[in-house]
């Protein structure tokens, strides 16, 4: 039974996965923080990623909807905006990253990037004093990753 205690392990684990698995784990990470946004389009987009048999076109469409959601949720230049209202934006950004081509290039894995975005979503909501919520997201992510790897091991995947 594989357990992940810290971010280094998490990061190492995620880098070993292939792209489809990474997308799958990433989608799970986003679902974990999906409650912060009311944008229903994301739920559908993520479901596409989780389905193993999703076609390239479906994936592209999902990515486009996630991207549109992210743009709709971004803080408009010069507009009166509040940091705490930004979590839907980061959730959408995470979904966008999960469903799309990884823009950042080789060094950071797709899943790790999504994880960071999801943590940023939680960070928006965490008030000055409350540190736990962000820590919860981190531990939740480690748990999700471990469960995913273990479930994979059970089905004979190495």
């Amino acid at each position: 039974m594989r357990t992940i205690e810290n971010d280094d392990d998490l990061r190492a684990a995620l880098t070993q996965m292939d792209v489809t698995d990474q997308r799958h784990v990433a989608a799970l990470f986003v679902e974990d923080v999906l409650e912060y946004t009311h944008d229903s389009r994301l739920r559908h987009a993520l479901s596409v990623v989780i389905r193993a048999d999703a076609s390239e076109a479906e994936l592209k469409a999902a990515h486009r909807t996630a991207r549109a959601a992210a743009l709709d949720a971004h803080a408009r230049c010069g507009a009166d905006s509040d940091w705490s209202d930004q979590s839907p934006y980061f959730v959408a950004r995470a979904a966008e990253a999960a469903t799309g081509k990884n823009a950042k290039g080789t060094s950071s894995t797709l899943a790790w990037l999504v994880a960071m975005q999801c943590r940023m979503a939680t960070c928006c909501l965490a008030s000055e004093t409350d540190q736990e919520s962000e820590e919860n997201t981190c531990s939740a992510q480690r748990r999700i990753a471990a469960e995913f790897i273990n479930s994979r091991k059970d089905n004979g995947h190495e």
Binding site: G78, W83, M116, R119, C124, A126, E128
Partner: peptide, 27 residues
């Protein structure tokens, strides 16, 4: 008006920056 009165045209306060600094430290 926000830039003059709050310090940022989008009304960003120091608290938002401090939250991000904490996040940076944590991550």
């Amino acid at each position: 008006r926000r830039a003059v009165e709050i310090g940022s045209p989008m009304g960003v306060r120091l608290s938002a920056l401090e939250a991000q600094i904490r996040h940076l430290k944590h991550d």
